[in-house]
Write a protein that binds this DNA or RNA. Structure first.
Lengths: 145, 145
DNA sequence: CTTGCCCTTGACGTCAACGTGAGGTTTTAG
DNA sequence: CTAAAACCTCACGTTGACGTCAAGGGCAAG
């Protein structure tokens, strides 16, 4: 009976890929990088339990935070065990800071883009000059244009 | 007299690189991509006016916003002329949306990282379970671990 | 048994923003 | 005038997260 339940709940790489919304290539890549493990059938096919779906989603989140696969490979075991050496805690905090920095950089960049947008949406001479000034006279005269 | 002033204010690639905080290789790459122009001396060396510094900084901002060099090449002339075709305005707005989306993605990802950090900093059983639940039982049992 | 889909490993392709010499010329400092 | 520093143009190397093709094996249905 347990076997039947397992068979309902276990899946091969294609189903996991579909459920987690990634490619099978990505999953094999994750395994190659040591951040996702699988059991195998006798014939060598990958088999995953249901928790793998959430694990892949976590991996995706960490990737989208800009963490490298090597960093993720270091972190995940600590997530599993629930504790990490102080050295890793330090690097986790540094990653956090990096993300925060990136976010504020993006905010600045978005502001720049907003200036460009408002400038091109509203080709008013005075306003153009003001915006150009705030952008550091980017297009002054020509010079290096 | 004007010539002297120009000589004071013009610069070659090394000085521009130093002032803008990028490599000379990057500046040549920008030129290759058509997003930074230069005049040349008789012997072929690149010469830039003072406005080039701010232009490079703008380019950096746009890069840090995740815009590709091709996109920047499309935008910059509009920044200079002060107006853009509606098609480009649309794509500018899409870029803006993309950046906003990226920022909120990063916020989510940072939250995930915070969970990992608080979990590993404080290996309290109950709290671990709670965090694991909020992370989707990522490390449940083992399964695909 | 065969059709057909899913799976396997292996290995090369991609894209972007440069880095990094090679090999030679130009400019500048002493 | 000479040596060092800076510049020039190729042009291949790097990094990361996959895409993609090749050449096969496994397995449920008809």
């Amino acid at each position: 009976m347990v076997l039947l339940d397992d068979s309902v709940v276990e899946m091969r790489i294609g189903e996991l890929a579909a459920r987690a919304g990634v490619s099978t290539r990505a999953l094999r890549y994750y395994e190659e990088q040591g951040i996702l493990h699988s059991s195998r059938t006798a014939s060598g096919q990958r088999v995953y339990g249901p928790s793998a779906v959430d694990r892949v989603r976590l991996i995706q989140h960490l990737f989208s935070a800009g963490l490298a696969s090597r960093t993720i490979a270091l972190i995940l075991p600590c997530v599993d065990t629930g504790h990490a050496p102080p050295e890793m805690l330090l690097s986790l905090h540094r990653e956090r800071d990096r993300i925060s920095q990136l976010m504020s950089d993006l905010e600045v960049a978005r502001g720049r883009l907003d200036e460009v947008i408002s400038m091109t949406e509203n080709p008013d001479e005075a306003r153009c000059e003001a915006v150009r000034d705030s952008m550091g006279r980017t297009s002054a005269i020509l010079g290096a244009g």
